[in-house]
């Protein structure tokens, strides 16, 4: 019996393909794309202010709301934070990625890669929570800063209006540190992969042609590592753009995109506005991905 079915299937590869591909494709099309479509449709509805009911008619009214000054500021603030986090992570990731790719022995390399991937997979929420403990006014970082007598510098930083706040755990500066920490592994891995692919012969050739080590680094290694940096930046940028956990836990009253979406759909009950607001990160990410592809980031993934 099983052999008969087996032969039957063997002669019909199209049917087998359908049986294999059908369930996952159907699931993703119906549940995921279907939901994205519902999101898109909802962004063209609007919330009637007086009745509090959602009017299911096509309108661009909700999109017009996105461009009011308050929301524009939210977009600007979030994009700026995402950019700052991305640049910082690229700088922080480089030494470790470089060491893993070029100097670590195979055995050490395996362990170092595990050491980088464990934080990447392990609970993002708990790692945010850890920073709540670290950045608290009475917490470990303050204690350390006190020990080094660096309080004046911290107070000065916290007094700057754009980045400061009452303490590190309630300020944009604190959020920036946490974002940079949380997404750092996403940058290290692609940069390391890109560096790994630089052939040694190229570096030897550069040396033979009279380049000093820093010239080789500047003119050979950096350009070849760049697609890896762009690949990593897709994650650091996208993840910062849509996050609402970090702003809700460590931010102040100044909203970020994710936080705005969260509160519009939750307490506001305004799904159309939340939907339209979500289209912001989607559009920004699509543009980002197109540029990244031009820069060769997808080969480095």
């Amino acid at each position: 019996m099983l052999s008969r079915i087996s032969t039957y299937l063997f002669l019909r590869p199209r049917l087998v393909l359908l049986l294999l591909l059908g369930p996952p494709l159907l699931y993703m099309l119906v549940v995921y794309l279907g939901s994205l479509f519902a999101l898109l449709v909802n962004s063209f509805f609007y919330l009637e202010e007086f009745t509090g009911l959602i009017v299911r008619e096509f309108t661009l009214r909700t999109y017009a709301l996105i461009f009011n000054p308050a929301n524009r500021e939210i977009f600007f603030r979030t994009t700026l934070m995402a950019a700052a986090v991305t640049v910082t992570d690229a700088l922080l990731a480089f030494p470790l990625a470089y060491y893993i790719a070029r100097f670590a022995s195979p055995r050490l390399k395996t362990w170092l890669l595990i050491a980088v991937t464990i934080p990447l997979w392990s609970s993002y929420l708990v790692r945010v929570y850890a920073w709540k403990l670290i950045l608290a006014k009475e917490g470990i970082l303050s204690w350390f800063i006190n020990l080094l007598h660096l309080n004046p510098i911290l107070d000065w930083l916290l007094s700057i209006p754009a980045i400061g706040g009452s303490s590190l755990s309630l300020s944009p500066l604190g959020m920036f540190i946490v974002f940079a920490y949380i997404w750092l592994p996403y940058m290290i891995i692609p940069v390391q992969t890109a560096l790994e692919r630089v052939p040694n012969s190229l570096l030897e050739a550069s040396g033979d042609l009279g380049a000093k080590p820093y010239q080789t680094f500047r003119n050979v290694i950096l350009p070849l590592a760049f697609p890896g940096v762009v690949a990593g930046s897709i994650f650091t940028f996208s993840l910062t753009l849509g996050d609402f956990i970090v702003p809700l836990s460590l931010g102040n009253s100044k909203f970020f995109i994710g936080q705005a979406v969260y509160s519009y759909q939750g307490t506001g009950g305004n799904i159309p506005l939340a939907a339209a607001m979500t289209m912001g990160p989607v559009v920004i990410m699509v543009i980002y991905l197109l540029v990244a592809r031009k820069l060769g980031a997808f080969d480095a993934l």
Partner: peptide
């Protein structure tokens, strides 16, 4: 971003 999947 996760929020896109979530809100969708």
């Amino acid at each position: 971003p996760g929020i896109v999947t979530g809100i969708a």
